[in-house]
Each structure stands twice: as structure tokens, then as C-alpha cells.
């Protein structure tokens, strides 16, 4: 007998564990590329769990309702994303909404902390939203123009009949891949978490709050990779997903290890340029 709650629980646990292991692999790849031994692959997972047993302190400067609620919202939206993608195969518009809320969370997390680093990250979150959301939205738009639906289940069925969308909409795949790179740790586009502003909006979150942020990040990583593979490589088996996720994580690890973090202006302009090329190029390809 099918049990919806059990399905949700299983998928959320998979997203957390697989996402954590993949982010651990990402760190390992980065380290090996930079000729360091690097931490064990489960380090990210152990790190996430460790924070729940650490002392949680709240700086005097924080706006407490926002400071606490924003972390709960961050966790909540990515649990919702797991349900929308892996459980109900719902609409891409919902995922776009979740991504938009994620940017708002970055903004409010930084501003509520009262830290200058958090506030700088908050400002960066505002204008990086202006380039990241069109990038992600552009990818979804091109998919919609190609398949005429935003329903993930129907997109999978379309690919089962017509072949993977990576061939029909390569520029949409490129835009989505840049979105994934943006969310990778130490990414060239990761200006909100730049080390020039310590840890950005996460700087003043300690103890269990940081634990929740790390859990959310691992689910975010899993959902983005799952979506990329599902939307552009058609119906895949579980082994296909595992191999695909490992390969993409290795590629992003290589990019993160070899590319310096871009200046915020350059990051935003690069993303906007890729969006412009992606959307205009895809429409031109459809007309031709």
C-alpha cells in the first residue's frame, strides 16, 4: 500500500544523505585538484551533524524573529522542493518560486544577523538575484517553449517519446548548468558566500542554526542535480542518477578548484550574458 508520508520521508532522507555525500565529494575533488589530501567524503555530513551538538549562541545585534525563522524557512523550502520534484513530479514554476525564496532567505539571513559581513552578503543577494533568477527562469522558459509544459512528469514522458532534451534545448541545459555551478561551494559565481566577506550570510549562524543551513544546502544540491538530469537526460534509472550526480559534482569541483571567485559585478554580468545568449539563441534556433 502506498503511503505518501513514508514516500516524503524516504525522499527527504535520501536528499539529505546523498546531497551531503556529494558535497563531501565536491570538497575532496577540489582538494585533489589543488594537490591537498582533502577531508574524507563524509566530512560534510559529519560537519552538518556536529553543529547540532555545538553550543548555539545568538549575537546581541541580531533581529531574533528573523534570525531564527529564516533558517527554518530555508530548510522548509528545500524539503518542499524535494516533495515537488521527487515525490509528486510537480511544476517547474514551483521550483522557480522556491529558488526565488532561497534568494530572499540569503538576503534576510544576512540582514537579520546585524553583522557587517552578513549585510554585505545581503546586498549581494539582492543583485545576484537579478542575474540568477533570470538564468534559472530562462532555462525553464526555453524548456516550456520546447515541450509546452512545465510539469516534470510530462517532461519525462516527452523525453521517453522524443529523446533527451539536451539535444533539443542545449542552451537551456547550459543555463541550468551555470545555475548549478552558482550553487556549488566555492563557486566563481558564489558571491553571497565569498570568503572576502568571511562566510557571507552564514557568518553569524552558529550551532544548530548552522546545522540546519548545511542540511538545506545538501538538499538544495541534490534537488538541482536531480532536476538537471531529469529535465535534460530523460527518464533515468537510479544507477543513471547516481553516476550523473557524481559526474556533475566532479565537474563542478574541478571548476570551483581552478576558477577564482569573480568580482560581484563580473559575476552578475557573466550570468546575465549567459542568460541572454541562452534565451535569444534558443529562440533563434526554434525559428530557424
Amino acid at each position: 500500500m502506498y503511503n505518501l508520508m513514508a514516500d516524503i520521508l524516504i525522499n527527504v532522507c535520501i536528499a539529505f544523505l546523498a546531497g551531503s555525500l556529494l558535497l563531501g565529494l565536491h570538497r575532496k575533488i577540489m582538494a585533489r585538484v589543488q594537490s591537498r589530501p582533502g577531508p574524507p567524503i563524509i566530512q560534510y555530513l559529519l560537519h552538518s551533524l556536529k553543529f547540532f551538538f555545538k553550543e548555539s549562541s545568538f549575537p546581541k545585534t541580531v533581529s531574533k524573529p528573523f534570525y531564527l525563522a529564516i533558517v527554518v524557512i530555508l530548510c522548509g523550502i528545500w524539503v518542499t522542493a524535494v516533495i515537488v520534484t521527487n515525490v509528486v513530479y510537480g511544476s517547474l514554476l514551483l521550483i522557480f518560486g522556491i529558488y526565488a525564496v532561497h534568494k530572499i532567505v540569503e538576503h534576510n539571513s544576512g540582514s537579520s544577523s546585524g553583522s557587517p559581513y552578513g549585510k554585505l552578503s545581503c546586498v549581494r543577494a539582492v543583485y545576484s538575484a537579478a542575474s540568477e533568477l533570470p538564468l534559472f527562469g530562462g532555462s525553464i522558459l526555453v524548456l516550456y517553449l520546447t515541450v509546452h509544459t512545465m510539469d516534470i512528469g510530462q517532461i519525462i514522458s516527452y523525453q521517453a517519446a522524443h529523446g533527451p532534451l539536451i539535444f533539443a534545448a542545449p542552451l537551456a541545459a547550459l543555463m541550468f548548468f551555470v545555475t548549478i555551478i552558482t550553487k556549488a561551494p566555492y563557486s566563481p559565481f558564489g558571491i553571497t558566500l565569498g570568503k572576502d566577506i568571511i562566510s557571507g550570510f552564514e557568518t553569524e549562524h552558529f550551532g544548530f542554526l548552522r546545522g540546519f543551513i548545511m542540511i538545506s544546502e545538501s538538499m538544495c544540491w541534490y534537488v538541482l542535480l536531480w532536476l538537471f538530469l531529469t529535465l535534460f537526460f530523460g527518464p533515468l534509472s537510479i544507477i543513471g542518477y547516481v553516476i550523473g550526480m557524481i559526474v556533475i559534482t566532479c565537474i563542478t569541483g574541478l571548476i570551483s578548484a581552478t576558477t577564482p571567485m569573480l568580482n560581484p559585478n563580473h559575476s552578475v554580468m557573466s550570468q546575465m550574458t549567459i542568460t541572454l545568449i541562452g534565451v535569444v539563441g534558443s529562440i533563434a534556433l526554434m525559428i530557424i
Binding site: Y2, A6, D7, I10, N11, C13, I14, L17, A18, L21, P40, I41, I42, L45, L46, I238
Partner: peptide, 19 residues
């Protein structure tokens, strides 16, 4: 769902082995 349950078991076992 059963396949996903197996996947979850594999992940838990992998983490246990790694620790």
C-alpha cells in the same frame, strides 16, 4: 518507492561503513 527505500538503505550503510 521500494527502489528508493533500497537506495536509502544503501546510503545509510555507506555512511556507516565510512564512519
Amino acid at each position: 518507492m521500494i527502489e528508493k527505500l533500497y537506495l536509502l538503505i544503501y546510503l545509510i550503510v555507506f555512511v556507516a561503513g565510512a564512519i
